[in-house]
């Protein structure tokens, strides 16, 4: 823990300018992730800028029939919104599958997708971690990998000492739903406003695991837009975890089933919410019986890399995620037929 200055700017533009000029400044929203990291020494900012009251706390209808969610809308408010529950059940379900009521009352639309990995080594400053301390190595490789990635990891057999190694997963449930919904992220930065497709917000570790997203320093999420789903589309979120509530996903699936189209995003398997586009492609226009979905998932998982570990590793995620996708799509299609 280290002392920091605290600022409460008057508006979003001032907040952006304040953070942009201070290299070790961070935004604070609900604080449910950042404050933990301040205590643990994982985050060591010089300046904390409170943006909680600087972005919209409204959910508004958009001209195209979708919704715009202000960045300050809490996870509880969003999950309870009638329009979200009726039109985007996948999102409401994902939100309610996350954390607890108390946390969701504080957690925000801007903060949730930007929460950081739960990798236990990332959270323990006494162990090497490329994400926390670039170049220090990755303690997770060969360690406790139950909650780690099987897709999009840096190398076939990751080298724990290499600076690019990271096998962390992104922990947000909400983000998996937003990925399947083709959400758009509204951002205000030092260079002005821009829109980022949600699927492009999060990064794979690539050669710099310290960066979770493509946001530049000082860029503030102001809102997230949901485009309308096709008429008759059904959606659902299924989260599989080690206990019935209050646990992060081992794997999760956000699915949308519409006429001739299946959209799938996977959680708990990669450094980012994983849009299963190969599986989607394999299923396009065809039947969505169990076998077809299973086959599509085989295609999706051809590059999957199970990680060994002190607790038996995470190879079980490969059959688990396939089974979960098959069951979720089955439930949605049976619902459609019914």
């Amino acid at each position: 823990m280290k002392p920091f200055a605290f600022a409460r700017p008057a508006d979003a533009a001032e907040a952006v300018a304040t953070v942009a000029t201070e290299p070790r400044a961070v935004f604070l929203a609900g604080g449910t992730n950042l404050v933990d990291h301040l205590k643990l020494g994982v985050a060591r900012p010089d300046l904390v800028v409170d943006v909680r009251r600087l972005t919209s706390r409204e959910i508004t209808d958009t001209a195209d029939g979708g919704l715009r969610i202000g960045a300050a809308v809490t996870n509880s408010e969003l999950a309870a919104d009638r329009r979200v529950r009726e039109r985007y059940p996948v999102l409401a379900q994902a939100l309610l599958a996350g954390a607890t009521g108390q946390l969701r009352n504080l957690a925000t639309t801007g903060g949730n997708p930007l929460q950081r990995t739960r990798c236990v080594y990332f959270q323990d400053v006494s162990t090497p971690c490329n994400k926390r301390e670039p170049g220090s190595g990755c303690s997770a490789v060969g360690g406790y990998t139950r909650y780690h990635a099987i897709l999009g990891t840096s190398a076939a057999l990751p080298d724990p000492t290499a600076p690019e190694t990271c096998i962390a997963t992104h922990p947000s449930d909400m983000a998996v739903a937003l990925a399947v919904l083709d959400a758009q992220v509204q951002v205000l930065g030092p260079a002005g406003a821009r829109t980022i497709p949600f699927a492009e917000l999060h990064r794979l570790p690539g050669d710099d695991p310290s960066r979770d997203t493509v946001l530049e320093h000082g860029e503030l999420i102001t809102a997230i837009d949901l485009p309308p789903l096709p008429a008759g589309a059904r959606s659902a979120y299924r989260k599989v975890r080690d206990r019935a509530s209050y646990a992060f996903a081992l794997v999760s699936v956000a699915a949308v089933v519409a006429d001739g189209e299946v959209r799938l995003a996977l959680g708990g398997v990669a450094h980012k919410p994983w849009r299963a586009s190969r599986a989607e492609e394999a299923l396009r226009g065809g039947p969505v019986a169990d076998d077809a979905v299973r086959h599509a998932m085989d295609v999706e998982l051809t590059t999957a890399q199970p990680q060994p570990g002190v607790d038996g590793g995470n190879g079980f995620k490969i059959p688990l995620v396939t089974r979960t996708v098959v069951a979720t799509v089955r439930d949605l299609t049976q619902e459609t037929q019914a």
């Binding site: 739960r118 236990v120 080594y121 959270q123 323990d124 360690g143 406790y144 909650y147 080690d242 206990r243 019935a244 509530s245 209050y246 646990a247 992060f248 002190v310 607790d311």
Partner: peptide, 16 residues
């Protein structure tokens, strides 16, 4: 212990 906090060291919850 790798999972040394209550978010990662799971104890049974009511919903189980």
């Amino acid at each position: 212990v790798a999972n040394h906090d209550l978010a990662e060291y799971h104890v049974t919850v009511n919903a189980d």
